[in-house]
């Protein structure tokens, strides 16, 4: 393959992935209600986004839910990974097999099955938020487990023994020696949990309280409705999320590059 062709292909795929997001971002700064129409510059969409109570509540709710779910998943998943690593082979096998189920399962099936368990079997009401939090946690913990496990495998286990010999209690040794070693895995698991929760539609739609909306369920409902003001305010939201992701990924990459230079 020659170089022009290769670069052309890369640019074409990037264009496909980014053109819609960037065009929408451009129009989010105009007063246009449809893309393709020429209107003047305006930040009305951003004003609407941050002053409409319904939209603000939805955004804050989604973020709080994601943080809560990610926190719960990280604690459960990290403990699970450490525990299962030192468990009997059979126990560990059983945990890893069950851990794999939500990973390979379709989100629709996970959401549906958790929902009928909670609602039809245990009669837990949706407006307690319990089904929603547990449903999303079910989706997220396996990924925390999977990102902590490789760090555990690479760890030098004599350090833990050394801590015990030097008079640490086992709990203290885990807290002071094991956990600090696992931090990179734990953080990446936490971030994965956040993104999974933010991206989730299916589990939320089956288990959420009727009056509560996440970004996903809200956007899907809004596309069915005909309120143009809300529709264009969501363009603004899309642009903000895009910029936040770019800033986060770019920043992380820059820090990573600096670190590897030093090392």
């Amino acid at each position: 393959m020659n170089k022009v062709l290769r670069n052309g292909w890369i640019w074409l795929v990037l264009l496909f992935l980014y053109a819609p997001i960037l065009i929408l971002a451009f129009y989010s700064f105009t007063s246009a209600t449809m893309i393709g129409t020429v209107r003047e510059f305006s930040v009305d969409n951003y004003v609407t986004l941050f002053t409409t109570p319904e939209l603000v509540e939805m955004i804050i709710g989604t973020l709080l839910l994601a943080l809560g779910v990610a926190f719960l998943s990280t604690v459960l998943g990290t403990m699970g990974a450490i525990g299962s690593y030192y468990s009997h082979k059979k126990v560990r096998g059983a945990i890893e097999l069950s851990n794999q189920i939500p990973v390979v399962n379709a989100d629709v099936v996970t959401g549906f099955s958790v929902c009928i368990l909670m609602i039809a079997f245990f009669h837990i009401r949706k407006d307690t938020f319990i089904p929603l939090v547990i449903g999303q946690t079910t989706l997220c913990v396996p990924f925390v487990y999977l990102s902590v496990m490789p760090r555990l495998k690479k760890m030098d286990h004599s350090l833990y023994e050394a801590a015990l010999d030097l008079g640490c209690t086992p709990a203290m040794a885990i807290w002071r020696v094991t956990i600090p070693h696992l931090i990179p895995g734990i953080t990446s698991g936490f971030m994965t949990a956040i993104t999974l929760s933010l991206d989730d539609y299916f589990i939320a739609t089956y288990t959420k309280p009727a009056t509560f909306n996440t970004i996903s369920t809200y956007v899907v409902n809004a596309t069915r409705g005909s309120q143009t003001q809300i529709k264009t305010a969501l363009w603004a939201l899309s642009t903000i999320i895009f910029l936040v992701v770019v800033a986060y990924v770019g920043g992380k990459n820059l820090i990573g590059a600096k670190k590897s230079k030093k090392a």
Binding site: P20, S216, S238, I241, V245
Partner: peptide, 10 residues
Amino acid sequence: WINFTLRITA
């Protein structure tokens, strides 16, 4: 990392 419903909207 961008919510898929927003990307599909775009």
